[in-house]
Amino acid sequence: MIKPVLITLAAVLLGACVSAPEQRPAALLQGERFLEMGVQSFRADDYANAATHFTRALDHYLGLDHQPGILHSRINLAETALAVGNGAAAERHLRAARPLAGAAEADRLQLLHSSVALWQGRPDQAVELLAPLLERVPPGTGLHRSALANRSAAALARNDADAAAWVERYAAALHGVEGGALVGRLHRFRAELARRSGDAAAAAAALQQALAAYKAIPDRPGTAATLEQWAVLLMDGQHWDEAEDRLQRALHIRLWLLARRDTVADLRRLAAVSEARGQPQRAAAQRRWAEIVAGAGPVDWAALQQEVLPQ
């Protein structure tokens, strides 16, 4: 007799706590779950898994002909491709996403296009893309800050006279922002300006701040880019040992990310350092690996790591 009473009581108690059930179809929720897992992997710097989840989400949404889902998947895939230094893949996804984008997503796609243009070494095109975007997007948003960061990068890449002004405008937009990748990027801009003005000490100090900002998150591509920038600064001052140390640390990250273009750049810089230190054989090996990675064929990454990096 007591059991039915207890069961009824429990059912009533549980019934009181039940919230409204999810109304959307399970297929849509499944797609969202893939996207959520991808975003979480991306935030954990696990780009390989992020790409896997986003690709599954894309397949899932393509199977449903769900346009917003396809658009979100492609935007996320483009971001992931840029994070691992694969501008070609990013461009492919952006091209496919363009017809699907409404007004809200068009700005985001334009920002990504500017990133691809910068990645491809076309800062003029990036400036053209960013000009209307900076007028349209309200200040204080992540999109506006990122657009300003790209605009500053383009100004520095073009050696514009107002590059410092753009950097300061970007700094002003980050007012009140504590840490993070955007702050790390600001320190790197300042380091570059200091290097160009010949103030190596100020540049090193800014890079140290950038490194601290990226490592606090942590942000692998940001960390690697900072180390590479530092290596260039040290090479200018002919501090070969320290430059080699920064390049090797950066290369470890690039190999982890399997970022081919950045790996090639690091290997070529390492070869230049080896030659400057009077190690022609080592330089030749580094150049040989740079050529292999630059090619389209498969790469024995383990062999590269064993030969080029200290174990």
Partner: peptide
């Protein structure tokens, strides 16, 4: 669902279940 209910909601940090990555600049 349980994680959203007190007292678990206070103890377990909420996972941001975004489906779109934040806008970010190019690293280089």
């Amino acid at each position: 669902g349980l994680q959203r209910i007190w007292p678990l909601s206070a103890a377990v940090p909420a996972v941001r279940d975004d489906i779109l990555l934040e806008a970010q600049p190019l690293h280089d």
